[in-house]
């Protein structure tokens, strides 16, 4: 039985439900009117499938993520977490240390997240932090992909939060040196391209 909508992200709407008496949520990757139907369907299917697969992997390796209960074409049924995401809660600094430690753990099992921002970290009532939203995740040992996860967090939080995050990450990661070095390289790459035929 699906009841009310409890939340909304950039891709999905989250409803409350139960699966075999377990409090659960449905993550419904809704149709986006701005994309043409074929592309939209492709993206929603592929990401739902990928998210289910990587959540199962992360779960099995002891990373704090919701468990997958059921998988449909555009929908996932996940165990329900009680709390709020870090972009809304404006939590204590400890949470960002946890975020760094948890990203290290995820990278250590060769998963990159692809959208590691405060919007995808959920702090529950007991103070435990959970990683959610694995639609852009990859199973990879690429240093670049891992460095990009850190870069994204860096651009999404303040200086103090980032410091705690990065410190904890460095401590927890098996390959933090190489990854942080790559982060520096990415940041130094001049991304501004000289405009040739410009349109504005």
């Amino acid at each position: 039985m699906v009841t009310g909508k409890i939340s909304e992200g950039a891709e999905a709407v989250i409803y409350e439900t139960e699966v075999l008496d377990i409090p659960a949520v449905v993550k419904d990757r809704i149709k986006k009117e701005y994309r043409i139907a074929k592309l939209d369907d492709e993206i929603r299917r592929a990401r739902t499938k990928k998210e289910a697969r990587i959540l199962a992997l992360a779960s099995s390796k002891g990373v704090n993520v919701p468990r997958v209960l059921l998988v449909e074409e555009h929908r996932l049924y996940l165990t329900k977490l009680d709390g709020g995401t870090l972009n809304v809660l404006k939590p204590s600094k400890k949470a960002f240390g946890d975020a760094g430690r948890m990203l290290a753990k995820l990278h250590n099992i060769n998963v990159s997240h692809g959208d590691y921002t405060p919007a995808n970290l959920l702090l529950d009532k007991s103070g435990r932090l959970w990683i959610i939203d694995f639609g852009l995740a990859e199973i990879t040992n690429s240093v670049e992909e891992k460095a990009l996860d850190i870069l994204l967090m860096k651009r999404s939080v303040g200086k103090a939060e980032y410091r705690d995050f990065a410190e904890a990450y460095a401590k927890g990661s098996d390959r933090s040196e190489g990854i942080l070095e790559r982060l520096g390289e990415i940041e130094r790459r001049g991304r501004y391209q000289t405009r040739t035929l410009l349109t504005g």
């Binding site: 592309l39 692809g114 959208d115 921002t117 852009l136 990009l148 994204l152």
Partner: peptide, 8 residues
């Protein structure tokens, strides 16, 4: 090919 990484 459709390539979005977070907000990049």
């Amino acid at each position: 090919p459709y390539t979005v990484k977070g907000m990049d």
